[in-house]
Nucleic acid binder design. Structure first.
Lengths: 240, 240
DNA sequence: GAGTGGTCTAGACCACGGT
DNA sequence: CCGTGGTCTAGACCACTCC
C-alpha cells in the first residue's frame, strides 16, 4: 500500500493525467490549489509533481505553472516503466511471453588482469562466471554473460541460475540491490553470439552492459546481455 | 556561475568524492555535519545529496547514512554525463573529433496518415523533413532523419540544418527545449542506411528515436538517428 | 504588478539500522 | 537504545512569466 502523503497525491494526479482530466488547458492546478485539495503542505505536493516530472508526464516552468507534456498512444511507449530492475523490456510488452532460461556455462573463476580490466573486479577475487541463454516463445533471443563477486553474493548454483539469481540475492541472501548502471552499445557479432543466438541474417547484436551495487556501495555484478536486433527497446528521459 | 546554495555544496562534495577524500570509510559525512560545515539548512544539503545520487555517485540508506558507490577508472564511463542534450556521445569522448554535417535531403511536407502514425504529429500539419549525414573524422557514422513541426519551429532552412538546428531553435526562435524522450533499438539495415553509412560488413544499425517537447508541453520534433555499430554508447542509471 | 514555481529556513516527528 | 536519513509542516523571500 502507498502510505506516504506524496505517493497518494502522485497517484491521484497521474491517474487524472492519463485519463485526460487536465488535458484541455494543458496545465496542472497550481500548487496552492493542490495544497488545499489534498489538505497538506507544499512539501508533499512538490514531491509528487517532481515524481511526475521524473517520469516525463509534466514539466514545471517557474512563473507559469506545471505544464502537461503531449501524449498520444504512440508516444506512451516512450514513457519510462519504473521499477523494472532486472532488465530488458520486450518490444511488445503486452503480448504474452513464454520464457525459459538455459544455463550453458557455470564456473567459479579467479579474476585475472584481463577480466579485471573488463569487469572492474579486483584481481584475485573469486567470481561466478555464468552464461545463460534466454528463450522468448522458444526463440534464443538473449545471452546473459554474468560475473558475480562470490564474496559479496556467495552460494550461487547452476540451479539458482536456472531460476532467478536476483531473487536469490534479494530474498535469500538479503542483499539489497541499490543501484544498477548500464551502458548500451551495438556490437558486431562474436563467436558466442553466433553459437547461441537466433540471429537470422543479422551480424550484429545489442549489448547491454550492467554493473550492480549493493547498499554498502560495493559492485557485486558485471553483466553483458547480448540481444538480437529488432526485438528490444530501451527508453530514456532527458530534462533541462 | 553557480549561485545556489545547494549547487555550491553539490560541486564541493562531488569534487571531494572524485578526488577520493571520503573513499576510506565509504561514507559521506552525516547531514548534520554538512549543515554545520556549509552553514546552511537541511534543505540545501539534502538537495545536493539528491543530485549526487541522481548521478550515480552515492546512495542514501535510511538509518545508516550516505554511502559512496565504488568507482574505478573503468566504471567512470558508466557515469552519466548530464547536460548533453543534443545527442550521441562517441565511445572515446576524449579523443579529438573532426565533425561535419551533410544535408542530403531537405523538404517541407504535410503529415499524412502514415507519417502521423510514426511521428505522432497530427495529420495535416506542415513539417520539415530533413536527412543529414554526420561525419566524424571524415567517416559517415550517423544519419539523422528529422521531422520538425513547422508551426512550432518555423523558418528552418537547409543552411540552418547544415549548422545547428538546436542552436537556431533555442537562440533565434527562443523556444525552450524542455524534455527529450528517447527509445533505443537495434534495427536491421534499410536502404537509406546502406546508401549513406559506412557500415563495413555490418548489416545492422543502432536507432535512437527522439521526441522533443518545448516548455508549453508541445512535441515539436521526431527524429531517428541511425548509427553504425561499435562506435557509440549510451548510459543509464536505475535506482531502487 | 499579480501570480507562479524555486530556494531556503527552522523546526517536528517517523522509520530504519546498528549496538 | 541511539544515530541516521525520510517525511512533513509553516512560513519567508526570490525569480520568472504574463498582462
Amino acid at each position: 500500500m502507498t502510505k506516504n502523503t506524496f505517493d497518494r497525491i502522485y497517484e491521484t494526479l497521474k491517474d487524472r493525467i492519463l485519463k485526460g482530466a487536465y488535458s484541455i488547458k494543458m496545465r496542472l492546478p497550481i500548487e496552492d490549489d493542490l495544497i488545499k485539495e489534498f489538505d497538506t503542505s507544499r512539501y508533499a505536493v512538490r514531491k509528487a509533481i517532481k515524481q511526475l516530472a521524473d517520469e516525463g508526464l509534466v514539466y514545471s516552468v517557474k512563473g507559469r505553472g506545471v505544464v502537461l507534456l503531449e501524449h498520444t498512444p504512440q508516444t506512451q511507449q516512450f514513457n519510462l516503466s519504473l521499477g523494472q530492475l532486472s532488465g530488458i523490456k520486450a518490444m511488445n510488452a503486452d503480448r504474452q511471453l513464454d520464457y525459459r532460461t538455459d544455463v550453458v556455462s557455470f564456473k567459479q573463476v579467479i579474476v585475472d588482469a584481463d577480466l579485471s580490466e573488463r569487469t572492474a573486479f579486483e584481481i584475485g577475487i573469486p567470481v561466478y562466471a555464468i552464461q545463460r541463454v534466454r528463450l522468448f516463445n522458444g526463440h534464443r533471443n538473449v545471452i546473459d554473460i554474468n560475473y558475480f563477486n562470490a564474496q559479496l553474493v556467495p552460494g550461487i548454483t547452476a540451479d539458482i541460475a536456472r531460476q532467478s539469481i536476483y531473487h536469490y540475492i534479494q530474498d535469500d541472501l538479503h542483499v539489497k540491490i541499490a543501484v544498477v548502471k548500464r551502458m548500451l552499445r551495438v556490437d558486431s557479432v562474436r563467436k558466442t553470439d553466433l553459437k547461441y543466438l537466433e540471429l537470422g541474417d543479422n551480424n550484429c547484436v545489442g549489448n547491454m552492459i550492467s554493473i550492480a551495487f549493493n547498499d554498502t556501495g560495493r559492485q557485486f555484478e558485471y553483466t553483458e546481455s547480448h540481444f538480437i536486433p529488432n526485438e528490444f527497446v530501451f527508453t530514456q528521459l532527458i530534462r533541462n
